[in-house]
Simulated scan of single mutants.
Amino acid sequence: MLSILQAAGWPIWPLVACSFIALALIFERFYSLRAERIVPPALLADLRQFDAAQMPSADVVDKLNQSSLLGEVLAEGLRAVIDEPRISDQHLREVFERAGRRGVRQLERYLTTLGSIATAAPLLGLLGTVIGMIEIFGSQAPGSGNPAQLAHGISIALYNTAFGLIVAIPALLCHRHFRALVENFEMEIEQAAERFYHQLTRHTHAAMRAARQAATPGAA
């Protein structure tokens, strides 16, 4: 491998760096973009059984916040209702939207870098090819034919082109795969948050009715 890198010349080193970065990002995204870390099935089942008449304690909300990305979004809504039981529907929806946007940013983390590597790697390989061709033509100048320089130029041209594609193809496939996962998780989080929002509004509406009845003269 070292001899191949030496034969490919200096243009191969940016591609080597891109390959290590892409590999690290791919492993990190495979670890992070798992259903149990984003939208655990157990949490979705508990959400369907949630009783808005009884708000959970602060410890339960903290555990929910640490459980998953969906838990962070739901915990934001719970904290808002616990802090202000008569919160307006619009304000509560804004709380969920802000939490959802933060969650989407976490899901999309590093995907731009991975996509950039998938785009740049073939161009870096092409750069190495052009440099190799320049050396080839330079070695064939009149009166200065140099077979060793010709072979070196061919090595630079071919190795860089091949390595650029070797880096780009897996990076592109993984980027597309992660992008599809993110879109699916976004939809699941949005649906779960919308369902939880309607459950919480039943609690806030009940709190508003109780406040109005308490403020009405002669109310029991």
Rank of each mutant, 00 (worst) to 15 (best):
L126D: 15
A45N: 11
N65D: 15
S32Y: 15
I166Y: 07
P40D: 05
A215R: 03
A120L: 12
A220Y: 08
M133K: 05
V182W: 08
I131M: 11
A206V: 04
L74I: 07
A7W: 08
L43K: 12
L165S: 11
N146M: 06
I134E: 09
S139Y: 04
G132K: 03
A121Q: 01
G128Y: 10
V130P: 05
R93I: 05
A52K: 06
F196E: 14
L127C: 05
A180Y: 13
R93M: 12
A192C: 11
R195D: 15
Q106E: 14
A8V: 02
L15G: 00
V16Q: 11
H205N: 14
Q213H: 07
F30E: 11
A214F: 03
M208A: 13
G115N: 12
G143V: 05
S139I: 04
A75V: 10
A151G: 14
L123I: 06
L78Y: 09
T129S: 10
A148P: 02
A118I: 01
K63W: 14
Q199K: 15
L126P: 12
I131Q: 13
S139H: 04
A211C: 04
A180H: 15
D51F: 04
I117R: 01
Q106C: 06
A171C: 02
A214I: 00
E194G: 10
Q90P: 01
L172H: 11
E76P: 01
T112R: 14
A7E: 04
G100Y: 10
A120S: 13
L123T: 07
A24M: 09
Q149A: 15
M133L: 13
E135Q: 13
H175I: 00
I117A: 00
C174W: 00
V104G: 01
I12G: 01
H198T: 05
I82L: 08
Y159G: 02
I38H: 03
A148W: 08
Q90M: 10
A58P: 04
H91D: 14
V16Y: 11
R79G: 01
M55N: 06
L74N: 12
L43F: 08
L181N: 06
I4R: 08
P170I: 00
E28N: 09
L200C: 05
